[in-house]
Design a protein around this nucleic acid. Structure first.
Lengths: 249, 249
DNA sequence: AGGTGTGAAAGATTTCACAGCC
DNA sequence: GGCTGTGAAATCTTTCACACCT
């Protein structure tokens, strides 16, 4: 069934839904674990459990990639690993730069998952001249002045921004001007970019706030406000106003 | 319009869509910035631009909270800040613990956004006894042995896991057993938790992989594979096989 | 039997477009 | 005249359930 003229509309044969794309890395991780344990095949049910989704969703997701399973048997682990990797573009080398080597930037540089699966940290860049040359995760920190040449020399198309919020847009503009077309933004700012540039945002305080929303519901509905009240009383000394005077979220 | 019997079905008067909840922190941040510049009112169009969404979506989102705007005028900035904060549960104090004080955990502890808006780092916890007592971001690292008592003493209901993948599930189990009901997970693993416990996941390599997917499309469709080919040729020496031998993603 | 692949139904989210109020 | 609030339409996502292959 890899041959033409099937039910699938030819017009968007390559149009994999965003929601599916976002789950492919999850499946890939679960499959990689199975592969390391030399498991040869896996059913949609087993794989779905390992990835934390339900099996109908997983099968639907895979159906957008093609028919890679065998009815009555399941999926060949190695083959699926390869197909998903290829679909995600992980069979090629993606050089990335990390800009802003503070606590977070250093954590990212040291993060193992970064180095695996075709991603390669091409350079660490920081605006602080005093940091230049210092080694982090086996790489020397380089000064922002070199940003453009580093990107050009390494054909970098993915940039990671781990600067303070105030610097993020300027860094972003320079990355884009130098040729970067995908940005992973850790700074708590909305970046504006031209069409054709992708931005994904990772925002710690947003995630916490979403948790707080649900937490509040639980407290209110299941415990009749008692815990919430107790918690309110436990404010630490020195922040007893209603508006904590800290930097903007 | 705080009074009853409106068009909204009473059955889910409190049922704010997840997608809307996920955007409230974005609006709140934009509003806080306006508030600091003492801007009194803002239109849906302006606020939407600042938050990086379109105005119809923003108005729809706000309509789930209530009618807080004035037709022909816009929204009162201070009032909206208050309403959204309240809706998100940020008017109360949320003590959090961070478990796993490696590079990432330290970065989180130092992250300013964490400390703002009602979140308070109650303790930093690490399994390495040699680290115990060391100060990070003004707080002493405490040993995992103390986890249960720390959570009980501080009424902690939100836990942040920044441990290696291998330790995450065990830490999670202990947090949950001790009373934590919301978890922000930075470890690249699927956590299993009982009903009633919320888990949100932040996964750096997943974000990168999603970017790579779109990046690949751009290269293939707009440049006729030329750049992709060039990039493939630039593999660094020592990783010329097809399967990079690094830790699982 | 056992498990994939997928139409069709159900549900959620986004966008449109305009009535209604200031 | 300008801008909110919201039904209704369009779109996207998930779930169901079963035909079909091994």
């Amino acid at each position: 069934m890899a041959t033409g003229r099937t039910h699938r509309p030819a017009t968007r044969s390559r149009g994999i839904p965003e929601a599916t794309v976002a789950r492919l890395p999850l499946y890939l991780r679960a499959l990689t674990a199975l592969s390391e344990r030399s498991v040869p095949t896996v059913s949609s049910e087993e794989l779905a459990t390992a990835a934390g989704v339900n099996s109908a969703k997983l099968r639907k997701d895979f159906s957008y990639l093609g028919s890679y399973g065998t009815r009555g048997v399941g999926y060949d682990v190695e083959y699926l690993v390869y197909q998903i990797s290829r679909e995600l573009g992980l069979t090629q080398d993606w050089p990335v730069v990390i800009v802003g080597i503070g606590n977070l930037g250093a954590a990212l540089a040291n993060y193992g998952g970064f180095a695996s699966r075709g991603f390669r940290v091409a350079a660490l860049i920081d605006a602080d001249a005093a940091q230049a040359g210092k080694m982090v995760a086996g790489l020397p920190i380089r000064h922002t002045d070199e940003l453009e040449s580093i990107i050009a020399d390494n054909l970098v198309s993915i940039g990671v921004i781990a600067t303070p919020a105030g610097a993020a847009q300027e860094v972003c503009d320079r990355l884009v001007a130098a040729g970067v077309t995908s940005i992973l933004n850790f700074a708590p700012t909305v970046l504006s970019v031209p069409d054709g540039v992708d931005v994904r945002k990772v925002d710690l305080s947003i995630e916490l706030q979403i948790l707080a929303f649900h937490e509040q519901r639980k407290a209110g509905e299941e415990l009749g406000e008692a815990v919430a009240t107790a918690r309110k009383a436990v404010k630490r000394p020195g922040s007893d106003g209603d508006v904590p005077a800290v930097m903007p979220v």
